[in-house]
Design a protein around this nucleic acid. Sequence first.
DNA 1: CTGTTAGCGCCTTCAA
DNA 2: TTGAAGGCGCTAACAG
Lengths: 329, 329
Amino acid sequence: MAFTVKDVAEQAGVSTATVSRVLNKDPRISAATTGRVQKVIEELGYAPNPFARGLKTSRSLTVGFLAPEFTNDFFLGIARGVERRLQEVGLTLIICNSNEDPQTEMDRLGLLLDRGVDGLIVIPTSASGAHFGQAVKLGVPVVLVDRLVDDFHADAVLADNVNGTYQVLEPFLLQGVRRIGFLGGDQRLTSARERYDGFRRLLEDYHVPFDPELVRFGDFHDESGSRLLSQLLELPEPPQLVFISNRFMHLGATRLLLERGLKPDQAPRLVAFDDLDLAASLGYCEAMVRQPVHEIGVQAAEFLISRLSGEGGGEPRLARVKSQVVSCV
Amino acid sequence: MAFTVKDVAEQAGVSTATVSRVLNKDPRISAATTGRVQKVIEELGYAPNPFARGLKTSRSLTVGFLAPEFTNDFFLGIARGVERRLQEVGLTLIICNSNEDPQTEMDRLGLLLDRGVDGLIVIPTSASGAHFGQAVKLGVPVVLVDRLVDDFHADAVLADNVNGTYQVLEPFLLQGVRRIGFLGGDQRLTSARERYDGFRRLLEDYHVPFDPELVRFGDFHDESGSRLLSQLLELPEPPQLVFISNRFMHLGATRLLLERGLKPDQAPRLVAFDDLDLAASLGYCEAMVRQPVHEIGVQAAEFLISRLSGEGGGEPRLARVKSQVVSCV
DNA sequence: CTGTTAGCGCCTTCAA
DNA sequence: TTGAAGGCGCTAACAG
């Protein structure tokens, strides 16, 4: 068995309360005593028992993170930012996989709450979010990332989807491009809807008539990227430029072009959300909207930390993190 | 505050001990009592306090996972397999990022141990592993994944690197290809060394003289992939075929070929470890060695679970997980 | 500035 | 088959 406060107290010739105070940086302890206790702690290699501490304080110093998928650099890049920031204030992150499935999401939520997490950072799988209410009811604050949900309001950190879409496309409209295709993601997700909004707004601002034939909706997976792009290619008059709503659809679309053996000058120009490896070297893609994953994570952590220290009032806060247009040429 | 055993006991008209026994499936409790208690538990939505339980049992039902990098599908694919298996036996996974840095690895190790994890699954960052000894000393079993380390022996799950390399290259030797380049990873890592071993063994078996000029070592990152391949391209007589040791180096190498504007028939053929998106569509790559990430994770979890239930004896066990050659044509 | 003390919620002997 | 009771290690009143 490891050492306890009692051992430290005896060794240092003080009471357990004093040891506890040193541990928790109580300012009332004299420098001399603090030093003596610290020394014993070091010598013994003592570390407080997290269970006993948790039992007493009912705080686990642990935060749960719910990601729809592990093998997705966007989600895990965010997790990394979260973790980095949390670690600075002594919080540990437990990452769970909701597997893009609302049922699994609920299960994992329950699991994390049972484990006594102090807070939760969630990238929701679906549009329904009523189940997050139970966390709040238990006094566990929740921060939503990337997507909002119905029936539940909380602090949220979203990418600036509207402007990202707008800005990556605008140069082409200025150049006179008018026939623009749009490959959308699952419209039940905030991020997908907002990218579509940006597209529509841009068309309006530039008085481009809306052509429903050029707009196709998929599900953010690569298969839908290739399928929808092939639909656009089969039109009597294919678009000159196609906006693609995320990395995976971009991947699928690119694969389609490669497999059809189309050279860049035989295919529509592409612009897309997210970074895609090799896209810049392949010649199809003109520009990508890079989401600052790290910043998104840090901002989410920031919201949570402030809630955990009782700040923020009752109002859900919303942070928009600016994305960056990266040219591929 | 949530409900406690005491609340349940009162509601059910039994003692707290009985409730505890029901919770822990003690077989001595009568079916009638069990039923009654279960019912109250359900009604109240009671869940045992993990801290109190941990304090008592000194088991957290938590396992730590140390990955060198979050945004790497190989590592997180493994984590996913681990998590899936652990969840079946009621264990939760805490994933930490060692950031490809031995110092961070030590810090996180300490953090996880302080948090009271019951076991540890580690993809080591470097060849040194003495620090893992402290986990074992605390009675926390460790399973190594993908790489072995010096000064520390434990159960380990490794890909079948030698055979993977051998098998992906052999068809070409049978076709008479003799001039084969090799782009190696960091040779301090088991996985990188073993892939090189497979290469050397193959050359011997087929009596191909070893040409050091064709062999270059990098660090598993994309930059080294492009740099080393460009070195090979500059040789008076470049290789006909190049083996690349992992996904990221493959990515870098592919980018180089694209940026040089080399058509597949103007460049060496490639074969590589790991899956690379688009590689199959680009025409440079002949075959890839797919590592069964999910299985690797499950096997690692299996080792850990058996250690946690006291099995396995004193002998470190080694599992080799077969990889699969995927043709790109 | 420091010590004493009483639990936090649960499990587990010991008794019945 | 069940109940009573002590204590796991720590913190936070309350004293001094």
